[in-house]
Simulated scan of single mutants.
Amino acid sequence: MTGKTHIMAGITATTAIVAITDAYQPEWFIAAGAAGGLLPDICHSGSKIGRRFPAVSKVVNTLFGHRTFTHSLLFLALVAFILSKFISNPSITMGILAGMVTHFILDAATKQGIKLLYPAKITIRFPFAATTGGKAEGVVLLALTVVTLFYANSILAFF
């Protein structure tokens, strides 16, 4: 999936969570969800985040390759641990983690799949697969946008 779809998925998930819960600092939570939606692709130099941090991207890709460690539960746990030590705002921490989970789900819906259980070499993918940047991804992006607008409308109704 492309960066814009990953960003929108992070925004969609966190906006929905804000709408159905009593989220603390929703603006930070949603922004962090967008960032978390990009974070796993730090392993790809052509990704939005990889182009922003090329040296980090190159090191991570050289060590692990694409869609392995940074697309795993191990990486999710490591990020959660690091955030808990350095970020005192739980909205940011939980938003980033929620965005990362959406990234994993979207990339598991591609032909390449992900190594969710890394270091095990098992590839996780859904039985249906979309091509990155293809028509199916466009439909997913549109659906995410509609869902975001639906939940954002219900959030605004409370103000």
Rank of each mutant, 00 (worst) to 15 (best):
T110D: 10
A98I: 15
L63C: 15
V60K: 01
V56T: 13
L63M: 15
S72G: 04
S72V: 00
T93G: 11
T102L: 07
V60G: 02
S57V: 08
Q112T: 13
L38F: 05
A13C: 10
V101F: 10
K85G: 06
L149G: 15
C43R: 00
L156I: 10
K111W: 09
R52T: 13
F81M: 07
H103Q: 10
F86E: 06
L97Y: 04
A129V: 04
V101A: 13
N153C: 04
S88F: 09
A77F: 15
A129S: 15
G50S: 07
F158A: 12
T132C: 09
L39N: 08
I11Y: 02
V56M: 07
Y118H: 03
A143G: 06
H71V: 04
I42C: 01
P40I: 11
L74V: 14
I105W: 04
I30F: 02
K115E: 15
L106W: 07
L97R: 03
H71K: 02
V56N: 01
I49G: 07
K48S: 10
I92D: 13
I92Q: 13
F69I: 03
G46K: 15
A35V: 15
A109H: 12
V18L: 07
I49D: 10
I30E: 05
H44S: 13
M94K: 08
T145R: 04
S72C: 03
G3H: 04
H44A: 13
K58G: 01
A19D: 07
S88R: 05
K115G: 02
A35K: 03
E137C: 02
G36K: 09
I105S: 04
A19W: 07
R51C: 10
F104W: 13
Q25N: 14
S47G: 07
R125A: 05
F69S: 02
A120G: 00
I124G: 03
T14A: 06
G138V: 11
K58P: 00
G99C: 10
G95R: 05
N153F: 08
K48H: 09
A77T: 09
V79Q: 00
A80V: 10
H44W: 11
